[in-house]
């Protein structure tokens, strides 16, 4: 009798949990999972000859075509996103560290300022970089005077695209880094500087490993959207800087070549999943969220 009593509440609790999950999970199942499946079938459709009209089939050649036609776009997306992620990490870390461990009473205000750019239009901010990086702007003029620019300009080069990606996804790097650094007991860092004396060794042996969950989460939250982005390439790059996102967008919306766009989407997702899995294994953490 008492055993049944012990099992009863547990079962009832599980039922409450399922009820709580139901609406949200159902929403995601219907509008995320089913579309993905639908996208997969679309990626195998066969052309009927007329634009925008396709019929069901298992045309695996779509994938071969997608890869042979757009492999450079994939490569660029991964390379640009990779550069942007590393740059964002380097830029975000000092700020996150400062907010978590040194900011004192300024901490709350600084966090607000980190999130604030979300409230200024993403498109307009990217557009603003056109003004900042323009050929006759201060930055370009200065760097040109120092002969640091191979093309003599920034705008409409891959540098501008990478700069734009770095800028746009920076808050997604700062916030998880901050969350991880905030959990570190400052006494550990003090103990580290007591043991290792040099600040650099302390950082390498204590702070960096302890902030690893934040580094992993931050790099993923930066890399994934950056790899799929097409706004920065469209607005800041030249036609030679287009990324896979551009290819998916144009194929879907302009060419209405749905099977091609779907195949490209699946290849992008698969490559991201592979990179992420390998990366998480290497970084040795399973706790992403």
């Amino acid at each position: 009798m008492t055993i049944a009593a012990a099992v009863g509440p547990a079962r009832r609790r599980a039922r409450i949990a399922y009820l709580l999950l139901l609406p949200g999970i159902a929403w995601l199942a219907i509008f995320f999972i089913i579309p993905l499946i639908s996208l997969f079938f679309t990626s195998l459709q066969v052309s009927t000859g007329s634009s925008g009209k396709y019929k069901a089939g298992f045309n695996w050649r779509n994938y071969v075509e997608a890869l042979s036609e757009y492999w450079e776009f994939f490569l660029r997306a991964l390379i640009y996103a990779g550069f942007a992620t590393v740059l964002a990490l380097v830029i975000a870390y000092p700020l996150a560290y400062f907010i978590a461990l040194k900011a004192g009473r300024w901490r709350a205000l600084m966090l607000v300022l980190v999130v604030a750019p979300f409230f200024a239009s993403f498109l307009l901010r990217t557009y603003a970089w056109k003004t900042i990086l323009a050929d006759d702007a201060v930055i370009t003029q200065t760097l040109n005077a120092l002969h640091l620019l191979p093309d003599g300009r920034i705008l409409n080069t891959s540098i501008a695209v990478i700069a734009g990606l770095t800028y746009n996804f920076l808050p997604f790097m700062i916030l998880p880094l901050y969350a991880a650094l905030d959990k570190i007991d400052p006494r550990l860092i003090e103990a580290g500087s007591d043991l290792y004396a040099s600040p650099f060794t302390t950082f390498r042996k204590v702070t960096w490993p302890l902030s690893m969950p934040g580094v992993v989460a931050g790099t993923l939250l930066t890399f994934i959207p950056a790899a799929g982005d097409y706004i920065n390439a469209e607005l800041l790059g030249s036609t030679k800087d287009k990324m896979i996102g551009n290819a998916i967008q144009t194929n879907f919306i302009e060419f209405r070549d749905y099977p091609m766009a779907s195949a490209l989407s699946f290849i992008l997702m698969a490559s991201i999943l592979i990179i992420v899995t390998v990366y998480i294994r290497r970084a040795g953490t399973e706790e992403l969220v």
Binding site: I224, A227, S265, I272, V289
Partner: peptide
């Protein structure tokens, strides 16, 4: 969904 690019 967070690990899926917005285009996808």
């Amino acid at each position: 969904p967070m690990a899926t690019p917005e285009v996808v």
